[in-house]
Amino acid sequence: MRKWVQEMGLGLAAVGRPAYITLGRDEDLGRDRDVAAMRARTWEVLDAAWAAGVRYVDVARSYGRAEEFLAGWLADRGIRPGEIEIGSKWGYEYVGGWRMDAARHEEKDLSAARLRRQLGETRELLGEHLTLYQIHSATVESGVLDDEEVLGELRALRAGGVAVGLSTTGPRQAATIDRAVATGLFDTAQSTWNLLERSAGEALARAHAAGLTVIVKEGVANGRLTSRGAP
């Protein structure tokens, strides 16, 4: 499996669906959250990132229409597979119905059946652009890292040339990272690490030493470490 390194990436969670948790988002996006407006804003953000030299984009099946918006941008701009790294994730499904006031926006299921279905959906949109496919918010408690059916599907995907990884969540990120490293399967580990949440730091260092690419998410704590998070 080839190794790839990017110093900076762009995540599309905040522009792929109408409601999200990032501070200051209402001010940035305004009231118009219909699909066309969000697609246009996504393309604007992608254009700016591309111009700035960003060559890694992070999406997920649960990020509303993020994969769809990205696929359209790639086609319109004529960007070929290999010119940009695309990482997506499976396990959560967007169920918000494109509503700001939805009672529930996403649903988690880390079964092999969902992996197979969502991988098919991702590939239909992103095709050969897909570089990395990750378990979305893996935890030790979920049992996904001991699910041989899931691991077998991921091994087959990896053997076909797509890197496999996981993102982590919750208070036991370090234990999840260590368990993932022990499987010998994963190419990447994506974890929350910032000045307010450093618990995964040593485990991420161990993962890096074991040969995994480390991806830091929530580096500014969803805006809390920017001027918008000031009291």
Rank of each mutant, 00 (worst) to 15 (best):
G97D: 06
I177A: 07
E197M: 09
L130R: 03
G160K: 08
V59M: 04
T139M: 04
A174F: 07
M1H: 14
R172M: 04
L154F: 00
V214A: 08
E197V: 14
Q190F: 02
G53K: 08
H129S: 05
Q134L: 08
D146P: 10
R155T: 05
Y92F: 15
R116Q: 05
G97W: 09
D47Q: 04
E149P: 00
A182K: 12
R206H: 10
R2I: 13
L195H: 13
K3L: 15
R41M: 03
F186N: 04
Y133L: 14
G127C: 05
I84F: 03
A175G: 07
E85S: 15
G201I: 12
E68S: 12
A36E: 10
A174H: 08
D28S: 14
R228D: 11
E153S: 04
L110I: 01
A175L: 11
R55Q: 06
E141T: 09
A203W: 03
G96F: 02
L10K: 08
R114L: 01
A37T: 10
L70A: 02
A113L: 07
M100W: 11
I135H: 00
W90M: 05
L126E: 00
G91Y: 01
R155D: 01
G219L: 10
Y20E: 13
L126H: 05
G184M: 08
R206V: 10
S88E: 00
W73N: 02
R123D: 01
A103G: 11
E124A: 15
E106K: 14
R61T: 14
R172K: 13
L110N: 00
G165Q: 02
E7Q: 15
I135R: 00
G64K: 03
P171L: 11
H208C: 09
D101S: 03
A163F: 04
A60V: 00
